[in-house]
């Protein structure tokens, strides 16, 4: 039996609130990788992110500066972590991390830390704010959207949109508004949390579907798994889902990847209306929290992403199991106060 090489991989997104981060699912996938063993370094922003205390999954965790702290603060912390851990790969799992990490990709590569991220152009182009232009450019159905930068601009909404509309944050959060008053309320609430702009989006009635996958940066589909949301939380997150075989979703994914030459993991959020037309609601530029379903149906996307990050050739996945479900659950861990104390005071555990 040949011994597998061991990679040290840093993973963020260890949180698990009702809109959980993808980190724990990504780590589960990496632990099941066939082509390497892993030492997992958790990257945490808060001291109560559950992944910090999952010692069967995460070998060591470091607290990390928020993306808003800027590239220099992030680099300084990474240099410290790298001096101890000798990282091979870093997988940022939050949208808000991508901007600084895309900027840092070359610097980190020189340090020996590999990532596999979309280009800055791809990252900006797929942004919610630019969804209309994205749909036009690539011939993909998208709901009408408008970016609003101040409260005064919302008064034009009634003439431009039919209620209800979706009020969305730049990175996270979305709420349905049925009238102008509700738009104002959601605008204030979401902008206070995530800043500007706020996106007003046409509400497409229908059934929600997602695709997660991996593009190699040259227009090829390395992996793609479509899923129908079966159980949806009040935040619109899938708490249960099932893999499906809809060819049109796979064609749409191929089209997205071949035309944008997307590099990295992604999630397409789709809505199918009563006329059976798919609308692309959002492109998330990273793997989703339900990524472990892809592993469960035969496509270990995190493993493939790591190999691409290391510059290795990865053969595209050609099949997956249809009709496999994920059912998410919450689990109360019992944690010693001492551990909480250590991560809170020393910033590492």
């Amino acid at each position: 039996m040949t011994k597998k090489r061991k990679l040290t991989i840093a993973v963020s997104g260890l949180n698990a609130v009702d809109s959980p981060g993808p980190g724990v699912a990504v780590i589960r996938a990496l632990r099941e990788a066939e082509s390497f063993d892993v030492r997992i370094i958790g990257i945490a922003y808060e001291s109560l992110e559950p992944g910090i205390f999952m010692h069967n999954l995460v070998d060591k965790t470091y607290q990390f500066p928020y993306p808003s702290a800027g590239v220099d603060a992030i680099l300084e912390r990474l240099e410290y972590i790298h001096s101890i851990e000798k990282l091979d790969v870093f997988i940022p799992n939050f949208d808000s991390e991508l901007y600084p990490f895309i900027k840092l990709e070359d610097t980190l590569k020189e340090m020996g830390i590999h990532m596999f991220l979309p280009t800055m152009e791809q990252f900006e182009e797929r942004h919610k704010v630019n969804l209309n232009e994205f749909g036009e450019k690539y011939g993909i159905n998208v709901p009408k959207s408008k970016a609003i930068h101040d409260l005064g601009a919302i008064y034009s909404i009634s003439s431009e949109f039919t209620y209800p509309v979706l009020v969305k944050g730049k990175y996270y959060d979305a709420a349905v508004a049925y009238n102008m008053e509700q738009v104002k309320t959601h605008f204030n609430k979401i902008s206070a949390k995530w800043g500007y702009p706020i996106i007003i989006q046409e509400f497409v009635h229908g059934t929600e579907f997602n695709v997660t996958g991996l593009g190699d940066g040259f227009g090829n589909t390395i992996a793609a798994v479509p899923m129908r949301k079966q159980y949806i939380t009040d935040k619109g997150k899938a708490w249960g889902g099932i893999s499906i075989s809809d060819k049109r979703m796979l064609e749409l994914t191929d089209k997205f990847l071949s035309q944008t030459k997307w590099r990295g993991g992604f999630e397409l959020e789709l809505m199918k209306n009563k006329e059976n037309e798919f609308y692309l609601l959002e492109i998330n530029p990273r793997m989703p929290a339900w990524i472990y379903l892809a592993v469960g149906v035969g496509q270990n996307i995190p493993e493939a992403l790591v190999k691409l990050a290391l510059g290795e050739k990865v053969e595209p996945f050609t099949s997956y199991k249809v009709g496999k479900m994920f059912v998410r659950y919450a689990w109360d861990m019992i944690v010693d106060m001492e551990e909480f104390q250590i991560i809170s005071t020393r910033g590492e555990l």
């Binding site: 079966q230 099932i242 499906i244 075989s245 809809d246 249809v322 009709g323």
Partner: peptide, 19 residues
């Protein structure tokens, strides 16, 4: 052709995920 039906009467449409 791809519609699956079990003896117990569970019908699954793999295209849409509906059951």
């Amino acid at each position: 052709p791809n519609i699956a039906v079990s003896d117990s009467g569970f019908v699954f449409n793999p295209d849409t995920g509906e059951s």
